[in-house]
């Protein structure tokens, strides 16, 4: 096995996917030849407008749906091979938009235990995994609470703990902050970043909030079912005009830098954060 293959978490090879329609001519071609790869330990942001194929891609990675053409390889396993299904779903966990749709039990720690229980993990080990997972998302104090009494951000952290207890190698977050208030959004983003930084978890983060992925290792932009841009956040976001053309946004500071440059101010075109903007303007 070469080094290259060993470090690959996810490999998507020329994937096409269509949603069927009763009238064949109206079938929706959600993905039109997508190729990408994600390394172990990477934090990758995926952006694209509604209907660009982001969620279809995430479902393919988790083997919820399968390519009409092409291959999706997760940790060396092809999703097409049905024998691999359970291993793949355990390897690549998913966290969705609505926390209320993901919590199943009436007590927080039981909810977190649901995944490992289904995997047939021995009870003692389940106990350990649940405690560890709750510690990682900093929710130990709520172990015996009822999930419906928690805030949106706390519920999402429980959903993340539930995935962690299955010990995946990679977590796909499909707009996990879309329904949260600012403090909930901050809590969840801090948790995601910490998982990646301290636990070397591979993170794929799909979002409409550009600020959330300025720290990502890489950003992938989807449009009409294709990868149209790919690179470091800094090189992606400075292409303000192009992103706006495909219906996307840039972080507020990048937009401000773009506007100020338009007025002839000499500041860098790849400003991402408040800190960088302060530096640029206060030299």
């Amino acid at each position: 096995m070469t080094m290259d293959v060993k470090n690959k978490m996810i490999d998507v090879r020329d994937v096409y996917f269509s949603y069927p329609h009763h009238n064949e001519n109206e079938a929706v071609h959600a993905l039109n030849g997508v190729s990408l790869h994600i390394e172990k330990g990477e934090f990758v942001g995926i952006i694209g407008h509604n209907g660009s194929g982001k969620s279809t891609l995430s479902k393919l990675l988790n083997a919820i749906i399968f390519p009409s053409q092409g291959d999706v390889i997760v940790s060396g396993l092809n999703t097409k091979d049905h024998q691999n299904l359970w291993t793949i779903r355990q390897t690549a966990g998913m966290v969705f938009q609505n926390p209320d749709n993901q919590l199943v039990a009436t007590i927080v720690e039981e909810d977190v235990a649901f995944g490992p229980e289904n995997l047939g993990v021995p009870p003692l080990e389940i106990r350990e995994r649940v405690d560890r997972a709750l510690a990682v998302v900093e929710m130990q104090a709520y172990a015996h609470q009822k999930p419906h009494q928690l805030s949106g951000g706390q519920k999402q952290r429980i959903a993340i703990a539930g995935i962690l207890a299955m010990e995946p190698e990679c977590i796909i977050f499909d707009e996990p902050t879309a329904m949260l208030d600012p403090s909930g959004r901050r809590e969840v983003m801090e948790t995601i970043k910490r998982l990646n930084r301290d636990k070397a978890m591979t993170v794929i983060h799909i979002t409409h909030f550009m600020e959330e992925i300025v720290d990502a290792d890489r950003v992938i932009v989807l449009d009409k079912g294709k990868v149209v841009m790919e690179g470091q956040p800094r090189t992606i976001f400075k292409q303000v005009k192009r992103l706006k053309e495909i219906g996307l946004d840039v972080p507020q500071m990048t937009e401000l830098a773009y506007e100020l440059r338009g007025e002839g101010l000499k500041i860098p075109d790849d400003v991402l954060s408040i800190e960088e903007m302060v530096n640029a303007l206060c030299q």
Binding site: P182, I274, M277, V278
Partner: peptide, 18 residues
């Protein structure tokens, strides 16, 4: 109370130092 202000508002506050 768990809220925030727009990013540019934070920026203006920082710029006030200079």
């Amino acid at each position: 109370i768990g809220l925030a202000v727009p990013q540019v508002t934070y920026l203006m506050r920082r710029l006030k130092e200079k």
